[in-house]
Amino acid sequence: MPHHRILTAAALVALCSAASAQTRTPASALDFGNDTSAWANDGECDDPRFAGPGASSLNVIVDLMKDATDCQTLYEAGEIWLIAEAPAPVKAPPPAGNAVQAPAGVVFGDDSGGWPGDGECDDRRFFGPGMARSVDTANIGKDATDCGAQFARGQVQLWDPNVARAATQCTAINFGDDSGQWSNDGECDDWRFEGPGTSSIMLMDDIMNDATDCRAACNAGRVFLRDY
């Protein structure tokens, strides 16, 4: 995912040294996935599980485990690390123009999406009671004011695939039935889930209505609980 990142050599050495001082999961123990992302093999890691000077400035859920070569190479070089193992608070580069940024360093983006200013967060990187009833990957980073306001109120949080993976026990989930319009299409349409195995558009109306697809994706480690 192309972007401009300015980092001095001294800063890079400091960051990498700090990372190496932490307990890091060996690369051999990580599943980096495949290279099916639109931004694979561009020299930056686009998998949202990682952070660091080698990571893209805007990593989205749809690229989870889909930039294997870049991420593995950068991980082994010490230029990225798992967010859960970050050596220090990792802040994303400041957004361009008048984009909104959360105090915690979450880049909200802008208000160029289809539903800005309606009081609901339409950016599916987030989860919580402040979310809209339908979310679309096309609105990622495009509902800044609404999502920023809901974030400030504690009504949405940034979805963390690592935490979600740990919290998801497929055998304990009631997947429902296949009564949804989009059941058995190979994608999970149940709003309760997020990850690379989900549809690009998720509706609350499809909760528990796509059992076969969602169960298969969960068992394959391609979807995890949205709320955890």
Rank of each mutant, 00 (worst) to 15 (best):
G109N: 04
V107A: 07
I140H: 03
R125P: 03
V135T: 13
W115L: 08
M131H: 05
G130L: 05
G141E: 01
A132K: 06
Q155H: 14
T145L: 10
D146F: 00
V135M: 03
S112C: 11
A138I: 11
Q150H: 05
G114Q: 15
G117V: 04
G109K: 03
P129Q: 10
K142M: 10
T137Q: 11
F127S: 09
R124F: 13
D111S: 02
G109L: 05
W115E: 10
P129V: 07
V135E: 00
D136V: 08
L158M: 13
N139T: 12
D143I: 02
D143H: 00
R133W: 12
C147G: 09
R153C: 03
D160N: 15
D122F: 03
R133P: 09
A144Q: 08
G109I: 06
T137Y: 12
D123W: 04
D111P: 02
V107C: 06
V135D: 00
G148H: 05
G109F: 00
A152N: 10
D122T: 06
F126R: 11
F127I: 04
V107D: 13
I140L: 08
A144R: 07
R125C: 03
D122E: 14
D123R: 09
A144I: 08
I140K: 03
D136G: 01
K142P: 06
R133A: 15
K142R: 15
T145Q: 11
C121S: 02
F151M: 11
Q157N: 14
V156C: 01
Q150M: 12
V156R: 03
W159M: 05
T137E: 12
A132I: 08
P116N: 02
G109Y: 00
R124A: 07
G148E: 09
F108I: 08
D122K: 01
V107R: 10
I140P: 03
F126D: 00
D146L: 03
V156K: 05
V107E: 05
V107N: 14
D110P: 04
N139Q: 14
G128W: 02
G114M: 14
V156Q: 01
M131Y: 01
S112M: 12
C121G: 02
Q155D: 13
D160V: 01
R133N: 13
M131N: 03
V156Y: 00
G113S: 05
E120P: 04
G141V: 08
S112D: 15
A138E: 13
G114T: 15
F108N: 06
A132L: 06
T145D: 12
W115D: 12
A138K: 13
G114L: 15
D110T: 08
W115F: 15
K142Y: 08
V135F: 00
T145S: 14
E120T: 10
R125W: 02
W159S: 04
G148K: 08
G109A: 07
D118R: 06
S134V: 12
P116S: 02
Q155F: 06
G119P: 09
L158F: 14
D111Q: 02
R124H: 11
S134G: 10
G119F: 06
D143A: 00
K142T: 09
T145A: 13
G148Q: 11
S112V: 10
D123Q: 11
A144E: 07
D118M: 08
P116M: 03
I140V: 14
D160W: 06
R153Q: 15
T145C: 04
F151H: 15
G128Y: 01
Q155N: 15
Q157H: 14
R124D: 13
I140R: 05
G130C: 06
R125A: 01
F127P: 01
M131K: 07
P116L: 02
